Amino acid sequence: PPDDERKKAEKAARSGNEEKAREILERLGYSEDEARELAKRLR
């Protein structure tokens, strides 16, 4: 489910793995720019 994926992205971002967070968010349908912004904010 998307919620689980989003949680994974948050966890990745918090542990400093912004790249992985961005990949997950892009898979969820965010654009590259949106995903980058979100990954930064989740950190």
Rank of each mutant, 00 (worst) to 15 (best):
P1A: 14
P1H: 14
P2T: 12
P2Q: 13
P2R: 14
D3G: 11
D3Y: 10
D3E: 12
D3C: 09
D3S: 12
D4P: 10
D4S: 13
D4M: 09
D4V: 11
E5V: 06
E5R: 07
E5Y: 08
R6E: 07
R6S: 05
R6D: 03
K7Y: 10
K7D: 10
K7C: 09
K8G: 05
K8Y: 07
A9R: 02
A9D: 03
A9M: 03
E10W: 15
E10S: 06
E10G: 06
E10Y: 14
E10T: 07
K11S: 11
K11G: 04
K11L: 15
K11C: 10
K11E: 15
A12Q: 09
A12D: 04
A12W: 15
A13Y: 04
A13W: 07
A13D: 02
R14N: 06
R14S: 08
R14A: 10
R14D: 04
S15K: 08
S15E: 15
G16A: 05
G16Y: 04
G16R: 02
G16Q: 03
N17D: 15
N17R: 05
N17P: 03
N17F: 09
N17V: 03
E19A: 13
K20L: 15
K20H: 09
K20N: 06
K20D: 06
A21E: 02
A21H: 02
A21W: 06
A21L: 08
R22Q: 07
R22E: 03
R22P: 00
R22D: 01
E23D: 07
I24H: 05
I24L: 08
I24P: 00
I24N: 01
I24Y: 05
I24A: 03
I24W: 05
I24Q: 01
L25F: 13
L25Q: 00
L25R: 00
E26N: 05
R27H: 08
R27I: 06
L28N: 02
L28D: 01
L28M: 14
G29S: 00
G29P: 00
G29W: 00
Y30F: 09
Y30T: 00
Y30A: 01
S31M: 05
S31T: 13
S31A: 06
S31R: 05
S31Y: 00
E32Q: 12
E32M: 11
D33V: 09
D33F: 11
E34T: 06
E34C: 06
E34H: 07
E34W: 04
R36L: 09
R36P: 00
E37N: 07
E37V: 10
L38A: 04
L38T: 05
L38H: 04
L38F: 07
A39T: 06
A39V: 15
K40E: 14
K40Y: 13
K40N: 13
R41Y: 09
R41A: 15
L42M: 15
L42E: 02
R43M: 13
R43G: 08
R43V: 11
R43A: 15
R43N: 10
R43D: 04
